[in-house]
Amino acid sequence: MSKISQMFKGSSGSSYSSSSSRSKHGHRSRTGPTPQEAIHKLRETEAMLAKKQDYLENKIQQEIMIAKKNGLKNKRAALQALKRKKRLEQQLTQIDGTLSTIEFQREALENANTNTEVLKNLSYAAKAIKGVHQNIDLDKIDSLMQDITEQQEVAQEICDAISHSFGDTFDEDELLAELAELEQEELEESTKKMGRLPSVPSSKVPTSKLPSSRPSYHTSSKKRAEEKDAMKALEAWAI
């Protein structure tokens, strides 16, 4: 067993014995840090290590300058500078690994803290919804919906009653049939007027007063007027 394992085992055993002794005496054990406190500490450690990185990088540049300055003039000083540079680079590599571990742990804590807050809020919302539903009576909901439906039907009946027209009502088919009969009578009357000829007087007229073979201007004008009236009647019926 390594010394580190023995050390952790000894510390855990001592802590267990101390905690058991505190529990025997009735004292409460101290609670651990909150996620916010742990995240804050990790960020402080990251900042400290970042400063250490800057310091080591500057020291490495200085050792390189010393090695270049001595060169072949003082080999021993140059080699010592390079050795120190190697040790500084090893420390820098270790710090890089440590920073990666701390960053991973910090992100895990931040995610765990976020998930805890989300679950807490979800639980809070679920309790609120449950409280709301406890105050709702399903029988009352059914009764309310039935009342709403009845009131909508009453409103529709009122609208129908208001929009109903007053006065005499007639059958539209009968009116159309009567209109067709009137149009047919008008057409027949116009046709009769177009086919009617001027009447010939029955009594004999003295030869001295017989009209000439050419019809008089008055008779022709009357006929043209009748034909014109008949055409107007046909045009009105067609429209």
Rank of each mutant, 00 (worst) to 15 (best):
K83S: 13
R84M: 11
K85N: 02
K85C: 01
K85M: 06
R87L: 12
R87H: 11
L88F: 05
L88C: 03
E89D: 06
E89I: 02
Q90V: 06
Q94L: 09
Q94D: 14
I95F: 08
I95W: 03
L99P: 00
T101F: 04
I102R: 02
F104V: 06
Q105W: 02
R106W: 10
R106M: 11
E107H: 11
E107N: 15
A108V: 04
A108E: 12
L109C: 12
E110K: 08
N111Y: 08
A112F: 11
N115S: 10
T116P: 00
E117C: 03
E117K: 14
V118I: 15
K120C: 08
N121L: 09
L122C: 15
S123Y: 03
S123M: 08
Y124L: 09
A125H: 12
A125W: 05
A126I: 10
K127A: 13
A128K: 13
I129K: 05
I129R: 05
I129L: 05
K130P: 00
G131L: 01
V132E: 12
V132M: 07
Q134V: 04
N135K: 10
N135Y: 01
N135L: 03
N135D: 08
I136W: 02
I136Y: 06
D137N: 15
L138Y: 08
K140I: 07
I141P: 00
I141L: 15
I141C: 13
S143K: 11
L144W: 01
M145E: 14
Q146A: 15
Q146W: 04
D147M: 04
D147Q: 12
I148D: 07
I148T: 06
T149M: 03
T149D: 10
E150W: 02
E150H: 05
Q151R: 10
Q152A: 14
Q152E: 15
V154W: 10
A155S: 14
Q156L: 13
E157L: 15
E157A: 13
I158K: 06
I158H: 02
D160S: 04
A161G: 07
A161N: 10
A161M: 04
I162W: 02
S163K: 08
H164L: 05
H164N: 04
H164W: 03
S165E: 08
S165R: 07
S165A: 14
S165L: 11
S165V: 09
D168L: 06
D168C: 06
T169I: 12
F170G: 06
D171E: 15
D171I: 13
E172R: 11
L175C: 07
L175R: 12
L176P: 00
E178M: 04
L179T: 08
A180N: 10
A180H: 09
E181W: 00
E181S: 05
E181D: 11
L182V: 08
Q184D: 13
E188Y: 01
E189G: 04
K193Q: 15
K193M: 15
G195P: 00
G195K: 05
G195F: 06
R196L: 11
L197H: 09
L197G: 05
P198Q: 07
P198L: 07
S199N: 09
